[in-house]
Computed example of a mutant assay.
Amino acid sequence: SDTPGRAAPFTPYLPPTPPAGAGEKPAEPEVFVPVARRPEQGVAVVRSESPQAVLARTLRPSDNLLAESLLATLAHPPGGNGTLRGALARERAFLRQIGVDLSGLKLADGSGLSRDSRLSPRALGTLLTVMHDLPYPTPAAQAAALKAAQPARLLPAALYRSRGNAFIEALPQAGTGENVPAHDGRGGTLALRMRGLNLDVRAKTGTLPGVSALAGYVTGRSGRTLAFAVLMNGPEDTPILTLRAVQDRVVQAMVQAH
């Protein structure tokens, strides 16, 4: 309607008064939330977690459903048209804006489960570099810096070293040794990889039959932060553990070389 009407006055719901027993005073209605303390008059209120917490719950256990849900938010107006095509177009627009080379790049979904998706190590490397440099600290890091009146602590390199970069800290961390099926620890899908090597690896895995990938960050022997992306494709019967072992050796070689 071009002329919206007015909603009916809000009337708080009160459960019926429980009947009283013989010789007893009628019991008071059981009100879940006192009317005077109700801040809203809606049907329900849902408050989401912080973006960093949602990212961690998505990236660490590699939750494909949550990844698709995050992509779906790009379809929401304003800016979105409610379609998968529109959401993927917004994703491409962001990648173009931050300087990612889109040559040969094809986005088909949010989780990477589609074999129609095409990425390059160079594209991932550019994305990782930009996400390292963006000044998006975790809430704890931001509060600590403001309390100490030291804005320099929010510089990218300092954020990385102090584990304060919100995106990077949402990634799995290698070698923590946690129970992977639990999917509730810091290590996530990297918990059992590169154990005992004393390496600082924070990265995202990618797995399909015959396909394995690892992309993220590692601290080199010199203390420098290194971004890397290893994409491996082969026949569907290629042993995934073999591919992962090669990736782990590549990461170790990078640390020794830099």
Rank of each mutant, 00 (worst) to 15 (best):
P34W: 08
T238C: 01
P181N: 04
G82M: 06
G80P: 03
A191E: 02
D200L: 10
G196W: 05
A89V: 05
T129H: 14
V251M: 03
G223Y: 12
S69A: 13
A245C: 00
A144W: 02
E49M: 15
Q41Y: 10
L71A: 05
Y136M: 13
G110E: 03
D200W: 12
L102Q: 11
G164D: 04
M194Y: 04
E236H: 11
D184G: 14
R118L: 13
R85K: 14
L155V: 01
A145H: 06
T11R: 15
L59Y: 06
R122E: 11
D101P: 07
L241Y: 09
A152G: 02
L65E: 10
P29C: 08
N81F: 00
A245F: 00
R186Q: 13
V31Q: 08
R221M: 08
A27W: 09
T126C: 03
A44P: 00
A253K: 09
R6K: 14
A213L: 09
P181K: 07
A213V: 02
G220H: 04
P135A: 08
N64H: 08
V43W: 13
R244C: 00
P15F: 08
A174W: 03
Y160W: 11
A140Q: 13
Y160T: 04
N64I: 02
L243Y: 00
P4T: 05
P12K: 03
T58V: 07
A158D: 14
P19E: 12
T83F: 07
R37S: 14
S114D: 03
L146I: 01
A191W: 03
Q252A: 15
A143R: 15
A7C: 11
V46Q: 11
S117Q: 12
A141F: 03
R221H: 11
L243Q: 15
S103L: 04
T73L: 11
G223K: 09
V255T: 02
R47G: 00
G112W: 02
A8M: 12
L55V: 06
G42F: 07
P12L: 06
A123I: 03
Q41V: 11
E68R: 04
R153S: 09
D101T: 08
N64R: 01
L243I: 11
A170Y: 03
A7D: 15
T219L: 13
P78N: 08
L66V: 05
G210H: 10
A253H: 10
Q247L: 01
N64M: 06
T58P: 02
L134K: 10
L59D: 05
H132A: 13
P26W: 01
A203K: 01
P51D: 05
N64E: 06
S212L: 03
V201K: 02
S111V: 07
L65H: 09
S69C: 09
A56G: 15
R202K: 10
A157G: 04
